[in-house]
Design a protein around this nucleic acid. Structure first.
Lengths: 243, 243
DNA sequence: TGGCAGAATTGGTAGGACCACTAGCGAGCC
DNA sequence: GGCTCGCTAGTGGTCCTACCAATTCTGCCA
């Protein structure tokens, strides 16, 4: 057992730090509806006094909830509850992709291989002409080249637009994290050498056509092919590293 | 535009707090390989001095990375880098389910509806008899009843075992978060009234049989049916709330 | 009426003091 | 000689105070 971290059912004075307890208190206040999105919290000094702890510890709790996307501190203005929408709460997801390496990268892509085809299929059923036009624009911008940075940007935006068309914010947030900038850039760096640009353009084109025809199953397949290509590439990279 | 939070490309002295910069420094040290899993960091006091900030600010940075599952502080012993495996990094995922309500709950289940069938199908191809026996045990334990707490526990464990058999830690961590205890408990509270226990048992049984026969497609279908049942229930709940 | 300067408010940073827990060392006992 | 127990130094946890920096409010003045 690697994780002896389970706590007993809160027997009031659990063996946790005051900061952790404060975080829990605040989270509870939110799920109980005492704190609603956009609401302003009391002053750090006040709030600390209310919950019976020092400002330092309260600040640690607030900082922690801030990085989790639950709270937002504005210098000089106060601390506020965020919108609590998936966009905010799942920002931290990108940290995984930022830090991960080795097998975990493969596992990340495999999850993407599950989600992205499903998202693309859903998008095919609900996408409108306006979004299709935007996709077309990203494709041409991408083919015209530019710095690696720019190309990656267009690639990310292309996929982001599609996923967004699936109209599920949680899904969008997760896939955003899985395809974080640094991760995608890492992949492209290698791609360039092997000149697989062309194939990627073709794959994007195939996805686009399926979406334009509102054909969910074709869209699903096209997306699956695309992500699988990335997976294959990652696999070969991993094998090379082992040598 | 709701989020004017984008920062300029770090022009050295970006307009961020020292704590945020410290967090970035530490994350960089990790992705650059200067800090590896399990390694011990310098003393808070030392480390703060090294990076040129106060211990208070350094503590906030460490606390933040701790809740993200990147670092682990042991009272009296020191601060360590975690294993950096998905289990650790994606713990925070549960916070979303803990706090979310309304439409977001629906979106969470919809993502689960995508992932769980895929995971179950994969599991069917690789599951061994030992795991099957454990699943059987969870099923009987669940049918024998007990407190809502216990039943939920067996339910969670049943699904956790299956997902784990898919051998993708990232997938496991995400689904764990999507099915966090409080969320699942909330669903069961409502279930009990309508007496849909029986159906759930049958659904579990069907999943089990598909796994035992190593039939991925049946497993996928059975899992999809199961999650869809939860989704439907959530939908009716939402409609009732609107009335 | 409008705008601007200053005061009050509030988060950000710093540094020090002390508490609580851990780990390692050494004395003492078996 | 080997083991245990207790002590001690080291380290994270908490609290406090002071001051800085950004924002917001207030009220005077043109």
């Amino acid at each position: 057992m690697k994780r002896p971290l389970r706590e007993e059912p809160e027997s009031s004075g659990a063996r946790t730090t005051v900061t952790e307890r404060a975080m829990q208190r605040i989270k509870d206040m939110i799920s109980d509806g005492l704190l609603v999105p956009g609401q302003r919290l009391p002053t750090e000094r006040e709030f600390a006094a209310d919950l019976g702890l020092s400002r330092s510890s309260m600040r640690e709790a607030i900082r922690a909830l801030t990085v989790l996307g639950v709270l937002e501190a504005r210098h000089g203005a106060g601390v506020y509850v965020t919108s609590l929408e998936p966009r905010d709460l799942l920002d931290t997801f990108g940290v995984v992709a930022e830090i991960s390496r080795g097998d975990t990268l493969l596992h990340l892509v495999q999850v993407r291989k599950i989600l992205e085809p499903a998202a693309t299929a859903t998008a095919a059923a609900r996408i409108d002409d306006e979004i299709l036009a935007l996709l077309r624009a990203e494709m041409t911008a991408m083919e015209q080249g530019g710095s690696a940075e720019e190309i990656v940007g267009h690639d990310l935006e292309f996929h982001r637009l599609i996923v967004e068309a699936a109209a599920n914010p949680v899904l969008s947030a997760i896939l955003d994290g899985l395809s974080s900038r640094t991760f995608r850039a890492r992949v492209w760096r290698g791609y360039r050498v092997e000149g697989v640009f062309e194939r990627t353009f073709q794959e994007h084109d195939r996805i686009y056509r399926a979406l334009a025809e509102r054909d969910p199953e074709s869209a699903r397949t096209a997306a699956a092919i695309h992500v699988t290509a990335v997976e294959d590439w990652l696999r070969t990279q991993a094998e090379m590293d082992e040598v």
